[in-house]
């Protein structure tokens, strides 16, 4: 039977009282959205990962593949999103092999929510699950305690209010694929600009019925770094050292040349610099 081990509960409480608090997992600021359109569903995410007020990764991936046609955007505790997504993805694959059918989005949703509920919110994954299966395009969100929502458009994470502001003002029913992609990108950008926990680029995944899902890594890159004003290349010899020892990394091996052939590389000329 699964479940957390509470063996150290008393010990940790004692240590906390003594002034050694339990280390906290990194809850990354994030903006993630999802939106349905005629014949498919699209999800998107920003690419900033933070450790407190420091940007840990400027271009991380928050879109996870659950199965070839079901994708998941994750917010909350980065490690929990990654691991819960991997675990359920594996189980979904086993399920698909045992049934001989492509997995459904509701199956993925149920497996995720039952896992999260079991851990009573201690697995801090906040997910937007989307995909296409024989029953059509589907879009759901799951909170860490296991509750789920269905919607035509959804947002989660610290930038969810900024994103939802965009979704609420611009969403309309029966959108085209391009309209849904533009809306999602704009909603993520609202998070990128207005939420300090979100930033950098927009990642996107489009899932259409009877088509392979398409991941648009860095669909928009509105935060390219400008060129620096100065060069910071240090001249050779700038760094001090106490002593120097040079060792050959490969031992020279004695050999004789028996034959040497030079062959043409064909029609294409080798590229030569300058």
């Amino acid at each position: 039977m699964g479940g957390f081990s509470f063996d150290n509960y008393q010990r940790n409480k004692f240590l906390t009282a003594k002034g050694y608090p339990v280390p906290t997992a990194t809850a990354t600021g994030t903006t993630i959205v999802g939106c349905r359109f005629d014949g498919g569903v699209v999800i998107a995410a920003d690419t900033r990962a933070t450790e407190g007020e420091i940007v840990a990764d400027k271009n991380c991936e928050k879109l996870h593949r659950m199965s070839p046609n079901i994708w998941c955007a994750g917010a909350g505790t980065a490690a929990d999103c990654e691991m819960v997504t991997q675990l359920i993805s594996s189980n979904l694959e086993l399920h698909a092999m045992s049934t001989g059918r492509a997995p459904r989005v509701v199956t993925c949703l149920t497996m995720l929510k039952q896992h999260l509920f079991k851990y009573q919110g201690h697995v801090g994954a906040y997910l937007i699950v989307a995909g296409c299966d024989p029953t059509g395009p589907k879009l759901f969100s799951i909170h860490a305690h296991g509750s789920t929502d269905v919607g035509y458009y959804l947002s989660l994470g610290s930038g969810s209010m900024a994103a939802m502001a965009t979704l609420e003002s611009k969403w309309k029913s029966s959108m085209t694929k391009q309209e849904a992609m533009d809306l999602c990108a704009e909603a993520i950008e609202a998070g990128i600009w207005n939420d300090l926990g979100s930033g950098s680029n927009v990642d996107m995944c489009v899932m259409e019925v009877n088509k392979p899902a398409v991941l648009h890594r860095n669909y928009r890159t509105p935060n390219e770094r400008s060129i620096k004003q100065k060069s910071y290349v240090f001249p050779r010899g700038t760094t001090a050292y106490l002593n120097e020892k040079v060792k050959p990394m490969i031992k020279p091996v004695a050999y004789d040349i028996f034959e040497e052939t030079v062959t043409s590389t064909g029609g294409e000329q080798m590229e030569i610099d300058g």
């Binding site: 007020e53 420091i54 400027k58 300090l196 770094r225 400008s226 620096k228 004003q229 100065k230």
Partner: peptide, 20 residues
Amino acid sequence: EETLKLVKDAFSSVTERHIH
């Protein structure tokens, strides 16, 4: 001139890694 370049580079770099 050099200091101005240095200051601009310093702030644009810090902007990359600090959310404030």
